[in-house]
Simulated scan of single mutants.
Amino acid sequence: MKNTIIAIFALSFMSVSHAAYKLYIPLEQPNGGSLPNGTIQIKPRSPGISAESWRVTDPLYGEWINVGGIYGCSNWGPDPSTQTIGVTFDQTATDCKQDQTTTKQEREQETTTLVYRNIGEPSIESKSVAVHSTRKVTGTKENWQAAEPLYGEWVNNGAVYGCSNWAPAPTSMLKDEPYNQTATDCKQDQSRTKQDREQETTTLEYRNVGLPVPENHTISVNSSRPSNGLASCVYNVDVINNYWYASAISNYLQVVVNGVAIKYQTNYTSTSITVNGVRYKRGALIKDNFYEVCK
């Protein structure tokens, strides 16, 4: 009877929910049915597991990784020409590029359990980002200042000239006697080159400014020259400088030139003598066996 009530209740429920269907339930024997008691068992029906619902969701990305080196830098600054020569400094460029890659994993998510699952294999994505770069550079800015000029040696131009105070005078020397005359008021023209220069204050390097220019001046010099005496004969017995003495009484000859006795000999009749390659002659009688000395 209990089973019959449950069956009737189920039939009433089904009739409401599904009017197009009919439910036939065999009766067990106590109620006039043909089936043994206990043959029909009606158990409560468990709720069915609903179907999964997946939707595409945000991909999963890896970290961006640099590929290769930085490139494309062009606006390096400051310029080496603005920095002191030889000094090392940091130069920076702000327009450089860096290639990067990452992995992208497509995913979907179950709407009820919120579980994620991958869609296919990971793919690679690439991009190029703007970066800065720094490098060590040496300055090239030079600072030049005027330096001492570079001079050449003074070189004589032409011969000595302008001499006027030659001494001793030829008329003061015995005739044809060779000697050196000296002048102290002579002049000598000279020239040299002057090269203007400048110096770099850091490296201390020199460089020329323009072409060498000539410089000239005139200096006072002494000069000497060979000469010959012009006095044909000289005599000065009072100071015993120059004389020719010939004595017939003692048959004696003495010749004094410039205060020096250059010849003693007998045979007073000699009228010429040669001393050290110079030929001296007896000149006119002055007095008392004293004669002029001539050359």
Rank of each mutant, 00 (worst) to 15 (best):
Y245Q: 13
T269D: 05
A147Y: 12
P170E: 14
W154V: 05
W144T: 04
H132A: 08
W244R: 07
L211T: 12
V255A: 01
S223C: 04
G210R: 08
S227M: 10
Q265L: 07
W154F: 08
G162Y: 02
T171E: 13
C163K: 09
Y206H: 03
G152I: 02
A246P: 08
R197L: 08
N216K: 11
K127H: 07
V255H: 01
G259W: 06
P178W: 13
N251D: 12
Y264C: 01
P178Y: 13
R192T: 05
A248V: 14
W244Y: 08
P214F: 07
Y264T: 13
E177S: 06
Q199S: 02
E177M: 14
Q254D: 02
H217Q: 15
V255F: 02
A169Q: 15
Q265T: 11
R225L: 01
Y252K: 05
T182Y: 09
Y151E: 05
A261G: 03
Q254M: 10
V131P: 00
G210W: 07
V260A: 03
T269I: 12
E198F: 05
W244F: 07
N157T: 11
N143R: 05
V129P: 00
Y151N: 04
S126E: 10
D238G: 11
V129Y: 01
I262H: 08
R135L: 07
S191W: 03
N251Y: 02
G210Y: 05
T203W: 06
K141S: 06
R207V: 01
Q145M: 10
L211M: 10
T266L: 14
K175V: 04
T171L: 09
K127T: 05
K175G: 15
